[in-house]
Design a protein around this nucleic acid. Structure first.
Length: 638
RNA sequence: GCCGAUGUAGCUCAAUUGGCAGAGCAACGGAUUUGUAAUCCGUAGGUUUGGGGUUCGAUUCCCCACAUCGGCUCCA
């Protein structure tokens, strides 16, 4: 007789050893049905795990995050089983669950094709119908190595040699497929009902490009068909919102082969959005006490030697160019230039804080295969700024920067933040005292905003601690844009100083910060977040006046000009086309306001607007509408 | 950079086993003067990403380059 304790504190007694599956059944039939694994004294185990003495037990259901992870992990094994059945020559390597799905890496003589994926998925379905039981067994280290070598699974043998000798090794068998795995897994393949294979791509063995390249098959798996459908729908939605596609459809920007990859051309309509963003940026920075700098895009390479970028950032820098017996470098960062401006004269402690901002365009060498639309480019503009201050001003400055960050992101429609505080790594510069003081100041600044944060211990740069802010878009995807970093290194390297109250030279603190990060990337995120339907204040074309016939041209032009005079970006469509055609066309261009003018409107000096909802709002006096729209733009309403 | 896939008109896509490169939309011309998501007719548009090669003949097969797409951290 022994008792197991459940998460809610209730206790169940058993008079013989039972499996977790039986424990679940004893609690309730519904739970037993949804159960995929369990937790015994905090350790994840299979449902077949036997308990025979007093322990705490939690049953993990397929709807829980942990249950989903187990389903995905088991789905990856199911896929490996299908692959081995179809292609016995393929060697299995690793296959974990990842966010929303799973993958498995194989070493196979030829590339898998999309046709293979279809076949593998079909075989997976067969194995599910077969409902192979999944069983766990423990083996000795030598036995396991011999076993996998005997099967020609070299990678598995290699994995074992990397595992701590004290740790027991477990094998999972399903049908004829046996894999080395920590588990746990679902009890049988029949539990896996909702999955789909998505893609195949290369991946290096152990993520190291020096190793052999394997083939990684990605899939997604869910507890039920409905969740799977929802996820696939989300993927479709993401594809529809793809900024590369919208950028082309809405004629906002392009990246051109003849110019080179990763270099962005902003077209007139994209430039209008950027202008709106920059105007807002300028306004808020003036209000927050910043001054603006304009600095060159290239400079003598020696500057980058002094800054240390040549030593630790070389891989991301373009090669230097030879000019008049000297080496010049196109800039990968703006900070050394701001330091040069600082150094151009003496500074007093009374000058602080100095806040200098620049929309600084930088060029970084990214691997050709890493380029991706506006998200990963080789030339981009940072909303960069550097604050020089004294140690005791750090907390106030960080607080103010955080204010500005949250206000900025909020204005663009992002209200959900994940904040990370990264602390001192092993290899770093600066004294313990300054690191402690600065790290505390960063934490205090976050707490002042009543925000939670995750501490990334040892995750800071070698030159100082930092705060990163991630935003969540309307599809739930997270993006890191903002970063606030302290720098104890550059002031040292450039030997910048100020004269303190004591008349002696002191070293200022330097803070780097970017709120949107890269304007290109931020623009891409906005495009996807709004699916191209920008809030009025950002929309490249805020309204179009549509005429019914030629007779309405004079009033249409008057409306357009009146709205333009009010500061709105409005065009008139005077083409000899039917109104339905014009509406369709401008709706597809995602224009926020369509203003229809015909006989009635012309007579009454009015317009009949349609807003983003696509509804005809009926006859409306022009001036009233202008007032509403101008107010929305002024408020930057989202 | 590496692996795989892709590259045809401004855009989205066709083109049997290698045999005269096509459609829709857009553009242009004409007709139509139209009331809430596509009016009709016509015209023009291409060194098939670029460069080599095989062949009587290459969009198609081979090689090289470039670009784009999916990946390359998430531990058996």
């Amino acid at each position: 007789m022994f008792e197991v304790t459940l998460p809610d504190g209730t206790v169940k007694g058993f008079d013989r050893p039972v499996t977790l599956g039986e424990v679940a059944a004893a609690i309730g039939a519904g739970l037993a049905k949804a159960a995929v694994a369990g937790r015994v004294d905090g350790r994840l185990v299979d449902l077949s795990h036997r308990v025979d003495h007093g322990v705490t037990v939690a049953i993990i259901t397929m709807q829980s995050p942990e249950g989903l992870e187990i389903i995905r992990h088991s789905a990856s094994h199911l896929m490996a089983q299908a692959v081995k059945e179809l292609f016995p020559g393929a060697q299995v390597t690793i296959g974990p669950a990842v966010e929303n799905g799973f993958y498995y890496d194989f070493d196979f003589e030829r590339p898998f094709t999309t046709g293979d994926l279809t076949a593998i998925e079909a075989r997976m379905q067969q194995i599910v119908e077969r409902n192979d039981v999944i069983t766990r067994s423990e083996v000795g280290r030598d036995e396991a190595v011999t076993f996998f070598k005997g099967m020609g699974e070299q990678y598995k043998a290699e994995i074992i040699s990397a595992i701590d000798a004290a740790q027991p090794l477990s094998l999972y068998a399903q049908g004829n497929f046996i894999d080395l795995c920590r588990g746990p897994h679902v009890p049988s393949t029949g539990y896996l009902k909702a999955f789909k294979l998505l893609s195949v791509a290369g991946a290096y063995w152990r993520g190291n490009s020096a190793n052999k390249q394997l083939q990684r098959i990605y899939g997604t798996a869910w507890a039920d068909a409905k969740s799977l459908r929802a996820h696939l729908h989300m993927l479709e939605e993401a594809e529809k919102r793809d900024h590369r596609r919208l950028g082309k459809e809405l004629d906002l920007f392009s990246i051109q082969e003849s110019a080179g990859g990763g270099l962005v051309f902003w077209h007139p309509l994209g430039a209008r959005v950027r202008q709106a963003i920059e105007a807002y940026w300028r306004e808020t920075h003036i209000a927050a006490g910043y001054e603006f700098l304009y600095t060159p895009h290239m400079a003598n390479l020696d500057l980058w030697k002094t800054s240390g970028h040549v030593d630790f950032y070389r891989d991301s820098m373009f090669h230097s160019m030879h000019v008049d017996e000297q080496e010049y470098q196109i800039r990968p960062m703006n900070c050394p230039f701001h330091i040069l401006v600082y150094q151009s004269r003496m500074h007093s402690h009374r000058d602080f804080p100095i806040r200098w901002a620049e929309l600084g365009t930088v060029y970084r060498y990214e691997l050709s295969g890493a380029l991706h639309g506006l998200f990963r480019v080789r030339g981009f503009t940072q909303d960069d700024a550097h604050v020089f201050c004294r140690e005791e001003q750090i907390e106030d400055e960080i607080t103010a920067i955080l204010d500005l960050t949250l206000a900025t992101l909020g204005t663009f429609g992002f209200q959900e933040f994940d904040i990370f505080l990264s602390t001192r790594p092993e290899k770093s510069v600066g004294s313990d005292a300054i690191w402690d003081q600065a790290t505390t100041a960063l934490g205090n600044a976050i707490r002042k905003h009543h925000l939670d944060f995750v501490e990334d211990r040892g995750g800071g740069a070698f030159y100082g601690p930092k705060i990163d802010v991630k935003i969540t878009d309307c599809l739930g995807r997270k993006w890191q844009c903002s970063t606030i970093q302290l720098d104890f290194n550059l002031p040292e390297r450039f030997d910048i100083t100020y004269i303190g109250e004591d008349g002696g030279k002191h070293r200022p603190i330097m803070i780097h910060r970017a709120l949107m990060g890269s304007l290109e990337r931020f623009f891409g995120i906005l495009l996807e977040h709004y699916a191209g339907r920008f809030p009025l204040w950002l929309a490249p074309v805020q309204g179009v006046v549509l005429t019914i016939t030629d007779a309405h041209h004079p009033w249409a032009i008057a409306v357009r000009d009146r709205m333009r005079a009010a500061g709105l970006r409005v065009d008139a469509d005077l083409r000899n086309e039917k109104i339905g055609y014009k509406i369709r066309e401008h709706t597809l261009k995602k224009i926020p306001w369509l203003l229809i003018v015909g006989d009635r409107e012309q007579e009454q000096k009015a317009v009949s607007p349609r807003d983003g909802s696509g509804k005809d709002l009926g006859l409306m006096p022009l001036e009233g509408l202008i007032e509403t729209l101008v107010a929305q733009v002024r408020e930057r309403k989202v």
